[in-house]
Amino acid sequence: MTGLVRWEGFSADPRRAEVAGIRAGDQDRETAVEALREAYADGRLDRIEFDRRSHSALAATLLGEFVPLLQDLEAPTPAALSVHEEALRRYRRETRDARNGVVAIGVMTSGIWGATSIASGELLFFWPIFPILGVGVGWLMHVVNRGQRIEHHERRIERRLSRREDEEDDES
Results as ranks from 00 to 15, higher is better:
113 W>K: 02
43 G>T: 02
94 E>G: 02
119 A>E: 06
5 V>I: 10
106 G>K: 06
10 F>A: 00
142 H>E: 15
151 E>L: 04
53 R>M: 02
122 E>R: 01
50 F>G: 05
51 D>P: 01
7 W>Q: 01
8 E>F: 02
111 G>W: 05
22 I>G: 03
131 P>H: 07
30 E>A: 12
50 F>E: 01
24 A>G: 10
94 E>N: 03
104 A>F: 14
39 A>L: 02
57 A>V: 10
40 Y>W: 14
161 L>D: 11
80 A>L: 15
31 T>V: 15
46 D>T: 13
159 R>V: 10
131 P>M: 07
96 R>L: 11
62 L>F: 08
14 P>C: 08
53 R>V: 00
19 V>S: 11
163 R>I: 15
22 I>E: 15
93 R>V: 08
99 R>K: 03
4 L>W: 11
122 E>V: 00
103 V>H: 09
124 L>E: 04
161 L>K: 13
82 S>G: 14
40 Y>K: 12
70 L>P: 12
145 N>Q: 14
88 L>N: 10
156 R>T: 08
37 R>D: 07
22 I>Y: 12
23 R>C: 09
61 T>G: 15
116 T>L: 10
58 L>A: 09
103 V>N: 06
119 A>N: 09
154 E>D: 06
157 I>T: 07
63 L>D: 02
73 L>Q: 08
138 G>E: 09
42 D>Y: 07
170 D>R: 15
50 F>S: 04
7 W>D: 07
114 G>R: 01
168 E>G: 01
162 S>K: 15
26 D>A: 15
39 A>H: 03
128 P>R: 12
44 R>S: 11
91 Y>Q: 04
135 V>R: 11
2 T>W: 12
159 R>L: 13
116 T>Y: 02
115 A>D: 02
42 D>Q: 14
9 G>T: 07
25 G>L: 06
170 D>P: 00
94 E>M: 09
82 S>Q: 10
90 R>D: 02
163 R>L: 15
116 T>P: 00
58 L>F: 12
158 E>L: 11
155 R>M: 01
42 D>G: 10
107 V>G: 07
